[in-house]
């Protein structure tokens, strides 16, 4: 079981605003939908579904399974201003690899929220004994790449012209990996 006793957790941003981090619950559907709609197109490229459609987000909210996908929302007042999701495979050869997706509202960037979300997911990854966290980011999302690198993720590979956005334009995809402490002990000590 993924440990959630640390939530709700309050953090402070660079502008002294207080933000609460907590796992998404079904009642967050509308807040999440409003959040997703305001994101730039490039941030939504990885979604398999059209997140502009309210029923898509409502569908996610009804089928939450924290063991497979744990969305942690950042909430300021009543508004969702960020999310980080940890995807895990329950079985199979990648069950010790967690995939990370982080989204930050445009008006809440450069306040340390993105970095805080990375810290949070790094902590959760440690608590569920993952060996690696894996993040995939479009190369144009430079601030996200820099923040991930500063937090210990290393570029594993850059796939050139690998993914397309919703208009069909191709982008380079940066794959970053973060080795977790258990793995490092296993290999090096």
């Amino acid at each position: 079981m993924i440990p959630l006793e640390r939530y709700p957790k309050e953090i402070t941003l660079r502008d002294d605003a207080h933000v609460v981090l907590r796992p998404m619950i079904p009642e967050d559907a509308e807040g999440l939908w409003n959040f997703l709609r305001q994101l730039p197109e490039i941030d939504k490229s990885h979604f398999h579904e059209d997140v502009e459609r309210r029923e898509v987000v409502e569908g996610w909210a009804k089928s939450l399974d924290y063991e497979a996908a744990l969305p942690i929302l950042a909430i300021r007042g009543n508004r969702v201003v960020g999310s980080v999701t940890l995807y895990r495979n329950k079985t199979g050869w990648k069950q010790r690899v967690g995939i990370v997706r982080i989204l930050i509202a445009p008006d809440h960037r450069h306040l340390g929220l993105g970095t805080a979300m990375i810290r949070e997911i790094r902590h959760l990854g440690e608590k569920v004994a993952l060996n690696y966290l894996l993040a995939e980011v479009i190369e144009e999302q430079e601030a996200a790449v820099r923040a991930l690198e500063r937090m210990g993720f290393g570029k594993a590979v850059v796939h050139r012209n690998f993914v397309n956005d919703r208009k069909g334009h191709l982008h380079n995809l940066v794959v970053l990996l973060h080795p977790m402490s258990g793995l490092e002990k296993e290999i090096f000590y």
């Binding site: 309050e10 402070t12 002294d16 805080a116």
Partner: peptide, 13 residues
């Protein structure tokens, strides 16, 4: 940064 985050304090810059 991790310690500040745990305490809910603003990030060190």
């Amino acid at each position: 940064g991790d310690l500040l985050h745990e305490k809910g304090l603003p990030p060190h810059s």
